[in-house]
Nucleic acid binder design. Structure first.
Lengths: 145, 145
DNA sequence: TTAAATGCAAAGGCTTTGCAGTTGG
DNA sequence: CCAACTGCAAAGCCTTTGCATTTAA
């Protein structure tokens, strides 16, 4: 087993996740690629190693990982994508080509706190995404005019 | 026609939207109820007035309104919901019962600006939602323990 | 008048479910 | 050993599409 996969295994064990080859591969895929895959991206990638893998396994695993807090869901409206729930960060998404760029900014604790005070909710987390045009698409749009 | 519906009509006309009874009713519904309906909520509500209305009309209209900037989409992962695109505000969502509460906070212009500088994107807008427990569900959870 | 919207039905895409067989701890 | 996970197939939901008909401007 590769060193990285060994590492993924340790991380899953540490969280008390029951290990299966499929789960390990999914987690490893998410850890290494960091490309905000869709469920189908993961399914396609998994088929290389497990030709008989089923979509059910992918969806069940992703749901389970999410419940256990290992991954987060992102995506408003369009396809659901998944991201490792490690460091806090936000995403900037190009509305033309779909490119996604990670973007670090201090976690908005004060806004969460404010939300809690205004609404009486116990606020646990939030999701923030930015939308616009990436440099390439922005340039192309200007050239066209 | 009710005064409110008349008002909805003026607003649609002002935006250059072609008026149909169905569109008027959908916009009116969104204006008056402010309950962040799903497409099906709107469809159900519309059937009272137009028994023969089709889901296609609802979906097409919502897509069109969204393209024209009259409404916004909300909802991460779960069901897509719609909200009038008037005043800027954010949402706090109860993860137990699904209750949604609007919450006003200054638009995060500086964060958008920062995102633009860090990523090179032309950032046009963002979406922010808070998740947690509403007062009721929070209380019930504490009682259970 | 006519481009655009509607209703209907069918198709499509993504996700979940039931179940029998397999497996990790 | 046995609860939990897997694969497979089927079902379920939400949403979109094609087409004939109607309608707003």
């Amino acid at each position: 087993m590769s060193e990285l996969k060994q590492e993924a295994l340790e991380q899953l064990k540490a969280k008390g996740i029951r290990i299966t080859p499929q789960r390990l591969a999914i987690y490893h895929d998410l850890s290494v690629k960091r490309h905000h895959p869709t469920a189908d991206d993961i399914y396609q990638s998994l088929k290389a190693e497990f030709p008989a893998v089923s979509t059910a396994t992918v969806y069940n695993t992703l749901r389970y990982f999410k419940k256990e807090g290992l991954i987060r869901e992102m995506g408003f409206g369009e396809l659901v994508r998944f991201d490792l729930a490690e460091d806090e960060h936000y995403h900037v998404i190009c509305e033309t080509c779909g490119k996604i760029v990670d973007f670090h900014y201090p976690y908005l604790d004060e806004v969460e706190e404010f939300a809690a005070q205004m609404t009486g909710f116990k606020v646990m987390h939030h999701r923030l995404e930015f939308y616009g045009l990436c440099e390439d698409c922005h340039r192309k749009e200007k050239d066209r005019q």
